[in-house]
């Protein structure tokens, strides 16, 4: 591993660094205020490694939700990750020993960064893809630890800094829109997304929207064959 690769990967992941550190801190503070300790943070941030699920899990534990309902909710909240892997099967077949880690670490943000590198040749190496995944994972753990250990004494008002991740997604969308000639997938996502949000509400719209979009894209591809 050489320094230029690490430097490239670090610069690529700065937006995720901002987002993950501050969301991680928020998570750590929640862990403490819910009566758990640093082992809870370490275990969930390192092996569960799924932001919204980690927040939801604390809420479920507080409400004494049954195990089966927690597990079913996990299926619903995290099923979207299946669709991420689906588009990376070929790219990830080029990994050997690191492949399990690459599959494990596919969060929303890591997936977004890896997609954004697809057409950039000097960035699309296995080393950089691995470093991007690994750094993001470390940021998330670090944020959680900071929040758990010293969250209640931090003096800064960082409200809104997690917008960095929204901005990252927006910038990637702009890049994709400029690169791709075919804008049908973009508009499919836009219209289906907004319609599902209005009909199903903020808590349940994402997975149905992904599934419906996949169906529409498949039907359209079949038509063009």
């Amino acid at each position: 591993m050489n320094l230029t690769n690490l430097k490239k990967a670090f610069i690529l992941t700065i937006p995720v660094l901002l987002g993950y550190i501050f969301l991680g801190i928020a998570f750590g503070i929640l862990v403490v205020s819910s009566g758990y300790n640093v082992f809870f943070t370490l275990l969930s941030s390192s092996i569960l490694y799924a932001g919204s699920m980690q927040f939801a899990l604390i809420a479920f534990l507080k409400e004494n939700a049954s195990l089966i309902s927690i597990l079913v909710m996990t299926l619903f909240i995290n099923s979207r990750h299946m669709f991420y892997g689906l588009t990376l099967i070929e790219r990830y077949s080029k990994f050997n020993k690191l492949k399990p880690y690459m599959m494990f670490s596919l969060t929303d943000e890591t997936y977004a960064l890896i997609c954004s590198l697809k057409d950039k040749e000097d960035y699309n190496s296995n080393t950089i893809l691995f470093l991007v995944s690994f750094l993001n994972h470390m940021y998330w753990i670090a944020g959680g630890l900071i929040g758990t250990l010293i969250g209640n004494v931090l003096p800064i008002n960082a409200t809104g800094i997690d917008f960095a991740m929204t901005a990252l997604f927006v910038a990637i969308v702009v890049d994709q829109y400029k690169t791709n000639k075919d804008h049908f997938p973009f508009y499919t996502g836009l219209f289906i997304g907004i319609a599902s949000l209005i009909i199903l509400g903020p808590d349940n719209f994402l997975l149905p929207a992904i599934i419906l979009s996949v169906i529409i894209l498949i039907i359209r591809n079949k038509k063009y064959e």
């Binding site: 689906l86 099967i89 927006v170 049908f184 997938p185 973009f186 996502g189 894209l217 591809n221």
Partner: peptide, 16 residues
């Protein structure tokens, strides 16, 4: 679908 789905998912994540 691997070629077209990433753009769809990315705009869905923005909405999310």
């Amino acid at each position: 679908i691997g070629d077209s789905l990433p753009s769809t998912i990315m705009i869905l994540l923005v909405i999310y």
